[in-house]
Simulated assay, not measured.
Amino acid sequence: MTIEDLKRKDIIVFECMSGSHAYGLATSESDEDIKGVFILPKEDYYGLNYIDQVSNETNDIVYYELKRFIELLSKSNPNILELLYTPEDSVLKIHPVFEEIRSHNFLSKQCKDSFGGYAMTQVRKAKGLNKKILNPIEKERRSVLDFCYVADGQGSIPIAEFLNSNNLNQENCGLSRIPHMHEMYGVYYGENSFKGIYRKDTSNDVVLSSIPKGLDPIAIMSFNKSGYSKYCKEYKEYWEWVDKRNDARYENTVQHGKNYDAKNMMHTFRLLNMCEEIGRDGKINVRREDREYLLKIKSGDFQYEELLEIAENKIKKIEEEYENSSLPEFPDIGRDCKLNSV
């Protein structure tokens, strides 16, 4: 089923502008996001054609089937609660069925975890981004050889340096484990006699060779296998991030020089502030009165560490608000939302 099918069948019961336009945070560069709710005809709902969500390719337009909408509502999903309490000037279409649903209050103490928990996930995401920006990884992938060192006097040198200074090739080397010494190897040499130190640049480990009796090693080598595994994981994560990142947002991050995704951090603080307001006032304010403050975060007016400290203090305040809140522990969907009347 497509968005065109929903409109052709006239089964959309709610439709609104969402995101920055609903929050009052839209700028000239902001995209237009549309969300809504639809009710499937009985033959589709009870048949084999049930579908719980319809969206376009970019997810800028998303419609939830009513049953799925209620399920997410029962979990105090932030996106769904924001949709339910959308400001009137952002509502594009509403059916009496949905007006009845909107007349009930579904806020509960569960919002502390759904709003606050999601915000903390974004804070951790911001930390990860900060690390990636400050510690870029070269495109040329390092190999096993870069994590191997040989003893040299009272110290050590990279084995690549050792091989180069002695005009030796890694392909002609053979390795044998040294008993009782973790990741330590004897290095032997002989043209066309051994398997090399590693097979190929993408190898995950060194390779062992059969060593003839009586042959003395030319060096003692250590392989930092755990360090190499950690590097491979970080290399994969970093370049997957580079491939998938939003270049426009990344350029904004680089330009303001604070090394965090400012737009993401703005929405993190929006969620934290909304979470505090729900616990304190028992209502949700989708249209933000703290617009100027949030836009300053988006513009990079704050240092990264400063925002983290503010967020930590905000979370402590949220804990206090919800301890003293008169909100119910969970939304009573069965009482407040009688689906059998829809």
Rank of each mutant, 00 (worst) to 15 (best):
E4F: 07
E4S: 12
D5N: 12
K7I: 15
I12G: 03
A26Y: 03
V37M: 08
E57W: 09
D60P: 02
I61N: 06
V62H: 03
L72D: 08
L72A: 11
I80A: 07
L83Q: 11
E88Q: 13
K93T: 05
P96N: 15
P96D: 15
E99W: 03
N105Y: 02
Q110R: 14
D113C: 07
G116N: 05
A119Y: 01
M120Y: 02
A126H: 01
G128M: 13
P136N: 02
E140A: 13
R141E: 10
L145Q: 09
F147P: 05
Y149L: 13
G155H: 13
I157N: 04
P158Q: 09
L163C: 12
L168W: 08
N172A: 10
I178E: 03
P179V: 09
P179Q: 04
H182D: 09
V187G: 12
Y188I: 15
V207G: 12
S209Q: 06
K213E: 10
A219M: 12
A219S: 11
N224C: 08
G227C: 05
K230P: 04
Y238S: 07
R249G: 00
E251P: 00
N252M: 00
N264L: 13
M266T: 00
M266Y: 00
F269Y: 10
R270C: 05
R270N: 06
L271M: 07
N273F: 03
E277N: 10
R287D: 06
R291T: 15
Y293L: 06
K296A: 05
Y304I: 07
E305H: 00
I315H: 00
I315Y: 00
K316I: 04
K317C: 04
S325N: 08
S326F: 12
E329M: 06
D332H: 03
I333P: 01
L339R: 08
S341H: 15
V342Q: 09
